[in-house]
Write a protein that binds this DNA or RNA. Sequence first.
DNA 1: AACTTCGTTTCACTAGATGAAACCTATGGC
DNA 2: GCCATAGGTTTCATCTAGTGAAACGAAGTT
Lengths: 247, 247
Amino acid sequence: MEGKKTVRAAERALDILLCFTQEPELSLTDVARMTELNKSTVYRLLATLEEKGFLIRDAKTEKYRLGFRVWELSANLSQTDDPAVLFLPEMERLRDQVEETVSLYIRDGMERIRIQAVESTQTIRRVAPLGARMPLSVGASSKVLVAYADPAVQKMVLSDPSWPDNVDKDQYIRQLDEIRNRGYATSFEEREAGTSAIAAPVLDRSGNIMAALSISGPVSRFTMERMQEVIPKLLESTHRMRKMAKK
Amino acid sequence: MEGKKTVRAAERALDILLCFTQEPELSLTDVARMTELNKSTVYRLLATLEEKGFLIRDAKTEKYRLGFRVWELSANLSQTDDPAVLFLPEMERLRDQVEETVSLYIRDGMERIRIQAVESTQTIRRVAPLGARMPLSVGASSKVLVAYADPAVQKMVLSDPSWPDNVDKDQYIRQLDEIRNRGYATSFEEREAGTSAIAAPVLDRSGNIMAALSISGPVSRFTMERMQEVIPKLLESTHRMRKMAKK
DNA sequence: AACTTCGTTTCACTAGATGAAACCTATGGC
DNA sequence: GCCATAGGTTTCATCTAGTGAAACGAAGTT
């Protein structure tokens, strides 16, 4: 009698689908191991996913991979005002100006997800960890996402038991005000050693945060001074993005 | 006790997801109407899809739209040897040479699906009906897909009750041999009035068909003579694609 | 205030999802 | 050749958990 309003069978099917974000090709037993589900359960769910075209089965290897239905979906996704597509041109513009990696993050629960990224001369498809998930406790983008989230969400994030011990929560909270005042956040080797970053919120017309835009690079090159130089450009980009947002 | 090996709840969840290929934004009742499912069933499945990040709920409109998880999936899709991504550059090359619309189709059951297309000066995202489904009974690409399918599939397609009465099956079958000999198929106003097309198979290393590549245009411009000119270019492209295919 | 419409919750019922185990092939080792 | 192992597939008894009707609450319309 808990507050579960979800459908288990559907959940499991989606979990299986998500396995394919990690590996492009998986066999029945691979999936069974990853999801820790019974072999026959996986068998039926795979059959379902295949029948609906979300997975296809490689004729040779007998393994499954993502099917055309995923394409249909993602094609439709781009017709919407999806930030990852909508803002890509602007992100490339910014990248060309500052010649550093530019990333776009959104918040999902207690994590942030990199939904888009452009690197020095790379194209969208080449960018390594698109869809990568990181904790909200560290990094410039994380703080921006939390600082501009609505109060209920902030409370949820800050009271979550998974908050790591080695990150001082009070100090973190103090930073949030500062970030809202300045309009951007910075970080030095916070999430990843050797990397520094600045991030600013992408707001929609009504002032709600849609995403966080960041510029990041190696500390050696992306110094404090350099940051100061690029901040106006970052803010100009987020401002332009705001105007692009639909409705 | 039929031969159903699928999971109903999962099927329904996927059906709901597919509703979003038609409309970018849907409310609970919209989905219930489209799928003809009970309101509470849809409610629970939508909650499941939302929790897993496949759908997000617009804060304002209360409607659902596709979520970031679809992005994660499609990002991964591109890392695989998905033809729609893999062959895009080659398709653009061909388009630039012939200055007509170039499309890539795969077979799914009794239909073909346009998984990629490039037009005169359009970019991938702009192409109207990506993911469009058409019958296998008419059109150059259809015949290629059937001609090079393996015998069991051919039998299935040709014995399907949904085969339209106005298409002569015997004549169709006779054409298949011809197509295999020549290596390509042509059509004049077959599927669509005012449009002619040529198509050739994209084979993998072992000679199995992966997709059909077509060039199509208005009959006025894309004449018999013009077709003869571009056939070598089409075949050159499919040949190059074959070498691109992984493994 | 009466009437819609839409999202949410409740509840009793049993369809249908589930896991253990048996059953098939393959493939590999010896 | 024969036995062993590791997939994938099917069966089947069990009972969870998914289901639809109906009721509910909250806006919005007339």
